[in-house]
Amino acid sequence: MSTTQTSTALLSCHGLVKTFGGLHAVDGVDFDLYEGEIRGLVGPNGSGKSTMINVLSGHLTLDDGQIRLDGVATERLQPHRIAELGMARTYQIPRPFGTLTVRENVEVAAHFGASEPQPDDVHDEAQRWLEFVGLAGVADELPDTITLHQRKLLELGRALATRPRVLFLDEVLAGLNPRELAHGIDLVRRIGSLGVSIVVVEHLMRVILDLCEHLTVLNFGKVIAQGEPEACLREDAVVKAYLGDAHA
């Protein structure tokens, strides 16, 4: 359960706890993300992955624990302050701004987002990200007229336009056909090569193994394995969590 990096983490979480009534959705999670890393966050349904993202992005308030983003405590900050510090996320089910065009969706993110670097020109910045994710051709459409794949790309483009240092991708590649999937994996890799640290939440093991240098496996709100993807997935606890006791 140790990572090989020795530098200080860009995002460092310690003892995160989030409960809903009596349910411990996140139960004492320690989690470090390093500069430029692509980290997989996996686990069975209900293991606390989405809750983790909601807690880290400030959508849900933490019951206990510390979060440091580049040394700044974020656990009591409002979501827009966390975004200003350079944290961005996508949504599992795309949530575009429905009355704004694709371009305007990205533009508004470029207007806001991280407090630095500020874009010189919001229009140009938006255009850049539209081209990056491949939506320049439908930039003036409304979100409900484009395909699901394109809406997922819009989630990515909008998140990127906020100029994040840390990006959470919540099943952004789920539900795509094989060709779209290959394109998506390539895209995430290119985002990583821009220097953005990425946390990939995903059910598709192929995606995880393709993309991630490190894995964190959650079950019932606890970290049950952490480290190299192949090794992680062989650990007894992980096999049990996914397949049940009989296979361990």
Partner: peptide
């Protein structure tokens, strides 16, 4: 920028907050 933020609030306030709009 103010107006862009307001339109974002109109369409989805949670997402607006998440991309950095001080709602």
């Amino acid at each position: 920028r103010f107006g862009a933020g307001l339109f974002a609030i109109r369409d989805d306030e949670k997402v607006a907050e998440a991309i950095g709009v001080p709602t």
